[in-house]
């Protein structure tokens, strides 16, 4: 926590917590197996980017067909425009529906942006919902959009109406945590970011024997492991994993200082009497990580889940 930033008022903090909780709840999908899965909701910006990519692809297809046609047949300019709009329409609508059907909820743009349509209830996507959400896209965005482009100045109310309509189409996704547009609501779908599975090695196994350079062995007593909770453990995990990255000269120096400070802090907190040599700091932290994790996991098995170091305050009263 930096000192320069003003501390949020309790009220604002409360609201922020609530928003975070809602966001977390929104990213939960329950498949038929009944194990809730975490599928983060795609942000609006990414979706617009995917949309633009798709638009570009279909537009390019329409234009190239139009050029081919105009080379084969003689056409008036007005006919070319009308035909172009028609072609664009008849390429665009099947493109969205077919590509989402064939590629399981992904168009080319969505593939590029690594997002995907999923059924809101956790079941499988149905053709009905894919057709519905893409048809509504026409009514929601494209038609008022083309109206805006093609209308003349003689009917200002229509321009304003279509502008308001487009604005509303963008406001609806912002007003719900799943970022569903109208078509998504009707079809019962929402768009998620594809998670990437990366299996990192297990620190507890990979760690070298907890023996320092001079043969000293780091051991921790149970009462020394009662100071921290899961959050602190996972923060330490992050730090230890970061040690494997290649570091520049200056950041390596910074890292070394941070390690010294952290080791000092932990030693004071848990009351670890022996001094730790600078060369042993990493080994000490790895040993502490393993011991702390084993301890916390064991406590958890006994129903004593410790979310963070304030676990003693958070425990419900009157049960003991």
């Amino acid at each position: 926590m930096s000192l320069s930033r003003t501390r949020p008022t309790p009220n604002r903090q409360h609201r922020r917590n609530r928003r975070a909780a809602r966001k977390k709840a929104a990213s939960r999908v329950i498949p038929p197996e009944g194990v809730p899965l975490e599928l983060p909701v795609a942000s609006l910006g990414v979706r617009v980017a995917a949309q633009l990519t798709d638009l570009l692809i279909t537009f390019a297809a329409a234009v190239s067909i139009l050029i081919l046609l105009s080379m084969l047949f003689f056409m008036y300019w007005s006919t070319v425009f009308a035909l172009g709009a028609l072609l664009f329409f008849f390429i665009r609508v099947p493109y969205y529906i077919l590509s989402e059907l064939v590629w399981n909820g992904q168009t080319l743009g969505k593939k590029l942006m690594k997002i995907k349509v999923v059924a809101h209830d956790g079941g499988s996507l149905t053709t009905h919902s894919l057709v519905l959400r893409n048809m509504m896209k026409e009514a929601e965005v494209f038609l008022p959009g083309t109206l805006l482009l093609t209308l003349d100045q003689t009917a200002p109310w229509a321009v304003w109406a279509s502008l308001a309509w487009v604005a509303m189409a963008f406001a609806i996704p912002l007003s719900n945590p799943h970022r569903m547009r109208l078509g998504d609501m009707l079809a019962g779908t929402h768009v998620i970011r594809l998670p990437v599975p990366i299996l990192l090695k297990d620190l507890a196994i990979e760690a070298p024997r907890a023996i320092s350079a001079n043969g000293q062995r780091f051991t921790f007593l149970p009462h020394q492991l009662d100071h921290y909770g899961g959050f602190e453990l996972q923060t330490l995990e992050k730090l230890l994993r970061a040690q494997e990255n290649r570091m520049s000269q200056s950041s390596a120096e910074q890292n070394r200082q941070a390690m010294t400070a952290i080791v000092e802090r932990i030693r004071q907190k848990i009351g670890y009497a022996d001094a730790v040599e600078p060369d042993d700091e990493l080994v000490f932290l790895q040993a502490f990580y393993s011991a702390q994790r084993a301890h916390l996991e064991q406590r958890q098995l006994f129903g004593d889940r410790r979310a963070n170091k304030f676990y003693a305050d958070a425990r419900p009263r009157g049960t003991g």
Binding site: V29, P31, P32, V35, L37, E38, L39, L98, L101, N104, G105, K116, V118, A119, G123, S124, L125, T126, T127, L130, L194, P195, V196, P197, I198, L199, L200, D202, L203, A204, G230, L233, Q234, E237, K238, R241, R293, L296, E297, Q300, L301
Partner: peptide, 30 residues
């Protein structure tokens, strides 16, 4: 329930989610 290894949890979350999306793909013919 039993693990506090964040990397493992995140990996399993992502893996199960990816597999879920494949297993529950639309299975209708156009």
């Amino acid at each position: 329930e039993i693990s506090l290894d964040k990397a493992l949890l995140e990996y399993l979350e992502a893996l199960a989610a990816r597999a879920y999306l494949i297993v529950y793909a639309p299975q209708e013919r156009l």
